[in-house]
Nucleic acid binder design. Sequence first.
DNA 1: TCCATATAGTCAAGATACTTGACGACATTC
DNA 2: GAATGTCGTCAAGTATCTTGACTATATGGA
Lengths: 167, 167
Amino acid sequence: MVKELDEKIDTLPDHVGWRLWQASRAWQAEFAAAMRAAGHGWFTEARAGLLGYIGRNGMRQSALIERSAISKQAIQQLLDGLEAEGIVERMPDPQDGRGKLVRYTSRGLDALRDGDRVKMEIERRYVSRIGEERFTALMGALRALAAREAAAMDEDAGAEGEVVESK
Amino acid sequence: MVKELDEKIDTLPDHVGWRLWQASRAWQAEFAAAMRAAGHGWFTEARAGLLGYIGRNGMRQSALIERSAISKQAIQQLLDGLEAEGIVERMPDPQDGRGKLVRYTSRGLDALRDGDRVKMEIERRYVSRIGEERFTALMGALRALAAREAAAMDEDAGAEGEVVESK
DNA sequence: TCCATATAGTCAAGATACTTGACGACATTC
DNA sequence: GAATGTCGTCAAGTATCTTGACTATATGGA
């Protein structure tokens, strides 16, 4: 079947962006399927993306905005959904009358635990597929890339600042 | 700035899925920004994803559906958009009265060329960020993962087939 | 104290990228 | 040539995210 596909397809892209995209999508599909199988039918990609930023001890909605680089309105809508599903709850911040605290419900913490388990299972599967050495190299490269990316963005920001100044 | 962020964030995820997602998004953002800068304002992520599947010589809409694993309706809508932008054109398939051929316009081919250039630039940047060795390792791991992924899916499909049969 | 300004969150409307379902035109097969 | 299947389309609905406008609260002076 794979061979058939290879024959049919004249030019399948093979550059970093494509590979990263495919790998990312495959991981997400695997994760989402496992989560739904574990009874978390409310689970979607966008929600997962947001939940990744919420610390286990809860946090300010505004802190979530800072971290996730999603617009506050989008976050609000995602939180509305998650709240309706009973995964998180919002309560007024006693420290600041304007703010609200977001934290996991017990159901949300259950989901979090399941999520961690699933992640470990997928990781194990990946290691068995490509070998520990390759997997380690993959993680190392991705971490390095993320670190340099952040550094480059800082430089860009600095450079942009200079450009603005010189105007 | 990076340090500040590290201090503020108690638990940033560090698993394959997260890293792949971040890397993929970063690449896409870089690519999209460069494409827009090159005058291709019509460029969006979803469209890029679809264009990746269209061979330079054009192809049947139905073939596109097979390859991309997106619903035919979604593909149609994306193609509608791309056609309206003058990137691709659709013509009846002389071989099959039902089918239509999708192929790039000359404007589309220009965009494709720019895309290739941008990809190479990004790749060069990546290599200079993390080193050639690490970059090669990254690509190798991603390719291996994709190949094993496909193989695993075939196995699953086979297993599912058996299950259906045994019903 | 009171006012100006900034910040936290909400409400509303619209765009994009999908989905499912129903359908008409053409092909294939028996 | 009639049943069946495939190809593309039309229509409607959903999820995610965006921009813009708004309310309530906080803060830092005059």
